[in-house]
């Protein structure tokens, strides 16, 4: 699939900001308010001069008035580390699901790049794949497209394994966006808890398709698990099909409830829904973009 956005859509994306509910220390100057005081443009506070401080920051007017050496402090505006986790397991192999996931990731990348944030694309399945850092600036979006287009789904899903490996690499805290169908045989809870324990602000994007919600067939069928290859002969009756649909709804509700309980952002993106609506409406409604 060729990932390309229309110019009009890109313009709309430029007006959007990724909302982080917490301020994180960045590495470079950008337009996002950082937690520490620094060399920004907006005055923040004064503090007593200490030997070794930069003379240029002394507020001489205050010294004349108060007779004390005070240093002017400014809010530091830095970049935000954004970690985009894209589920590239076999369960995402349905074209509509994986394409939607890549489009969402590309759009979020572009928003981050447009605001000079540090975006890292992290494909994963049962473990973390090769991370991809496109650089800074919105001009890098085409590299992002190439990176995402090169992704191929494969392997089973393991959120816990993925985030354990992610934590072991010693990352700067930031915004972690997890784009997945969350069909993890071990459950999604432990993985997301692990990620949350690393101090990241987490945003969950649940990709769901019609094939996930409905069995897709009635009668005697042999289901093949696309991740593990496991076979299961099932006589799908209408009652069983309804039970399956209910089970999926419970699974989706559990994910949403978990996110609410642990203060994780949550958005559900249907694979069949128009992509622009997801970005411009659903994500804004989920208070992830503003």
């Amino acid at each position: 699939m060729a990932l390309r956005f229309e110019d009009d859509f890109l313009k709309k994306l430029e007006y959007l900001h990724v909302i982080s509910r917490r301020a994180f220390a960045g590495q470079n100057r950008a337009d996002r308010l950082a937690r520490k005081r620094g060399r920004g443009l907006e005055f923040a506070d004064h503090r007593q001069y200490a030997p070794g401080d930069d003379f240029r920051q002394i507020d001489w007017k205050a010294y004349k008035r108060l007779g004390r050496l005070l240093l002017r402090l400014f809010d530091e505006e830095q970049d935000l580390p954004i970690y985009l986790f894209i589920d590239a397991s076999r369960s995402m192999a349905l074209p509509e699901k994986f394409d939607q996931a890549r489009r969402v990731a590309a759009a979020l990348c572009y928003i981050g790049l447009a605001h000079l944030d540090r975006v890292t694309i992290l494909p994963f399945a049962d473990e973390l794949g090769d991370e991809k850092v496109p650089g800074r600036g919105k001009g890098r979006i085409f590299r992002v497209f190439e990176m995402l287009e090169a992704l191929e789904p494969g392997g089973p899903t393991s959120l816990r394994g993925t985030f354990t490996e992610f934590g072991s690499r010693g990352r700067q805290q930031g915004l972690a966006v997890v784009i997945s169908d969350f069909l993890d045989p071990e459950g999604f809870e432990r993985g997301l808890k692990l990620l949350a324990s690393m101090g990241h602000d987490i945003f969950v994007c649940h990709i769901a398709s019609k094939m996930d919600r409905h069995p897709g067939a009635l009668g005697d069928v042999r289901f093949v698990d696309s991740e593990t290859g496991e076979l299961r002969d099932v006589d799908v009756t209408p009652a069983l099909a309804n039970a399956y649909t209910r089970a999926w709804e419970e699974h989706a509700e559990e994910l949403q409830a978990f996110c609410g309980r642990f203060n994780l952002g949550f958005v559900r993106a249907d694979a069949e829904a128009p992509f622009e609506d997801i970005i411009l409406k659903t994500f804004r409604k989920g208070r992830f973009l503003a």
Binding site: R90, S91, M92, A93, L94, K97, T157, D181, L183, D184, P185, S209, M211, D212, P215, G216, A217, G219, D220, V221, R222, F223, V224, D225, S226, E227, T228, E230, L231, R232, D233, V234, A239, L240, A243, Y244, A247, W248, H251
Partner: peptide
């Protein structure tokens, strides 16, 4: 018993849950 048609599903996670439930 004839061999049923194969249908690939993203995951059997939910099917296992449904089938393991005593209905």
């Amino acid at each position: 018993r004839v061999r049923p048609p194969k249908i690939a599903v993203p995951s059997l996670l939910l099917w296992r849950k449904v089938l393991d439930q005593k209905r």
